Computed example of a mutant assay.
Amino acid sequence: MDTSGFLEWLKASLSSSEKTSDRRILRFVHPDDDKRFLRSLRAERPGSKPLRGIRRLGIIRAYSCPVPPEGLPVSFGGAIVWEEDIRVSTHAILAAQRVPADSGIPWGVRRIRAPEAWSRTTGHRVRVGVIDTGVDFDHPDLRHSLERGINLLQRTALPHDDNGHGTHIAGTIAAANRMQGMIGVAPRSAIYPIKAFDYNGTAYVSDIILGIDWCVRNRMDVVNMSFGMSTRSKSLLNAVSNAYRSGVLIVASSGNDGKRGRIDYPAKYPQTVAVGAINRKGEIASFTNRSDSVDIYAPGERVDSCWLRGNRKTMSGTSMATSHVTGAVALLLAHKPGLTPEQVKTVLKRSKRPLRNAKAPRKTGELDIARMLQVADKLM
């Protein structure tokens, strides 16, 4: 393929102010074409402003860039495959009232029996990537749990949270303020915030792929992805699969549309841990998507956790359920270092506690950390 000609076409296309461009993810069919294009792009990008909008997605050997609505010229069609760079949203609802400062151990953390495990494991030194809206670095409940992470939307800045969702997720996983704040599931784990979502709680698939790439390169042990979409993305599947093969487990939320027999991507990919939500009664929450693809359920209704400017708030959603499971995985990996993603999934599935609702699917169950550690000790 004439990769130089394709680069020139892209440059001319991106320079045109008359055309409204949509973001797409492009991948060369032949690896040699990819290598030649990457060399040319790196050589020409410094002197070409239009080419700076092209982003390399290294983990899947692809590129995200604006492409005119009419798409690629026919002459390049056989050598390149592409898909839309879809917008993705976080999985949270009901941003509700503030929570008192001395909130202690939230109900969800107690429900999954995390305090019973803290004499044996607190998640010490487990690296948790949270691909989300960033985090409040000044929050008193989180200060001792945070590492620098990365801001994919503004590379020179810290991944500060301008939405609140990421801070809430981080709090459930690893808040550590025993004296006057709240305690998360794995209070001695290390949170690495990866800001891929803007203040509206939305991101492009390519931003998420860049986040997964960063997590693999920086050796995260587990990654929390509390968001989803109804459309399948082959590019995102490739990134998730590559992370899984690299030893990085992704925990993802099933979605908040109350659907039966269907859950969102990336939770639907078999390489993730798919999480649904339960309420305080231990029943499947009305808002959660559910199907046989859900691996485990966890507390997701009216969950208290950290919020912006040092506050705390109550939120509901499969996002909240997912952060409980991510914290549990951090406890497990600190207790049994070196477990593969497949082994972690096996332990979670075999240690599920049956759901209370008689109408709940027989094959599913809720997270129980005490049982999880027992199963791990027997199996591993």
Score class of each variant (00 low, 15 high):
residue 353 R to F: 04
residue 331 L to C: 08
residue 341 P to V: 07
residue 317 G to M: 02
residue 349 K to R: 14
residue 337 P to Y: 09
residue 339 L to I: 05
residue 318 T to H: 00
residue 340 T to C: 11
residue 346 T to K: 00
residue 326 T to D: 07
residue 313 K to Q: 08
residue 312 R to I: 13
residue 334 A to T: 04
residue 337 P to A: 09
residue 338 G to A: 13
residue 332 L to S: 08
residue 354 P to K: 13
residue 329 V to P: 11
residue 314 T to H: 06
residue 349 K to N: 07
residue 350 R to G: 00
residue 356 R to L: 09
residue 353 R to L: 04
residue 349 K to H: 07
residue 309 R to D: 03
residue 325 V to M: 01
residue 340 T to E: 12
residue 330 A to L: 06
residue 330 A to S: 10
residue 328 A to G: 15
residue 324 H to W: 02
residue 350 R to L: 03
residue 308 L to K: 06
residue 333 L to E: 00
residue 316 S to I: 02
residue 318 T to D: 06
residue 353 R to K: 12
residue 309 R to T: 01
residue 354 P to H: 12
residue 326 T to Y: 13
residue 354 P to F: 03
residue 335 H to S: 08
residue 353 R to I: 05
residue 314 T to E: 14
residue 321 A to F: 06
residue 310 G to H: 15
residue 316 S to K: 10
residue 339 L to E: 01
residue 337 P to V: 14
residue 346 T to F: 00
residue 316 S to R: 06
residue 325 V to D: 08
residue 345 K to Y: 05
residue 344 V to Y: 02
residue 329 V to G: 04
residue 339 L to V: 13
residue 311 N to I: 06
residue 355 L to C: 08
residue 330 A to G: 07
residue 324 H to R: 01
residue 328 A to P: 15
residue 316 S to W: 02
residue 312 R to Y: 15
residue 331 L to N: 01
residue 326 T to A: 13
residue 352 K to C: 10
residue 354 P to G: 11
residue 332 L to P: 09
residue 327 G to E: 08
residue 326 T to K: 07
residue 345 K to P: 01
residue 334 A to F: 08
residue 310 G to Y: 02
residue 312 R to L: 13
residue 347 V to K: 01
residue 348 L to T: 10
residue 354 P to Q: 10
residue 320 M to I: 06
residue 337 P to S: 14
residue 320 M to R: 10
residue 344 V to W: 00
residue 311 N to L: 14
residue 344 V to G: 01
residue 342 E to P: 01
residue 352 K to N: 07
residue 311 N to Q: 15
residue 320 M to K: 11
residue 347 V to F: 15
residue 323 S to E: 15
residue 349 K to S: 09
residue 319 S to D: 10
residue 351 S to D: 01
residue 329 V to T: 06
residue 335 H to M: 09
residue 344 V to M: 03
residue 342 E to M: 04
residue 323 S to T: 15
residue 344 V to R: 00
residue 313 K to H: 12
residue 317 G to R: 02
residue 320 M to Q: 10
residue 313 K to C: 11
residue 351 S to N: 04
residue 332 L to R: 08
residue 333 L to G: 12
residue 326 T to N: 10
residue 355 L to V: 03
residue 339 L to G: 04
residue 336 K to P: 01
residue 314 T to M: 12
residue 348 L to M: 03
residue 336 K to R: 11
residue 319 S to N: 04
residue 343 Q to N: 05
residue 319 S to I: 06
residue 348 L to S: 09
residue 339 L to W: 05
residue 333 L to H: 02
residue 356 R to T: 04
residue 315 M to R: 14
residue 346 T to Y: 00
residue 343 Q to G: 07
residue 333 L to K: 13
residue 317 G to S: 13
residue 345 K to S: 13
residue 335 H to E: 12
residue 318 T to P: 02
residue 317 G to F: 03
residue 342 E to Y: 12
residue 353 R to V: 03
residue 350 R to V: 00
residue 340 T to D: 08
residue 343 Q to I: 04
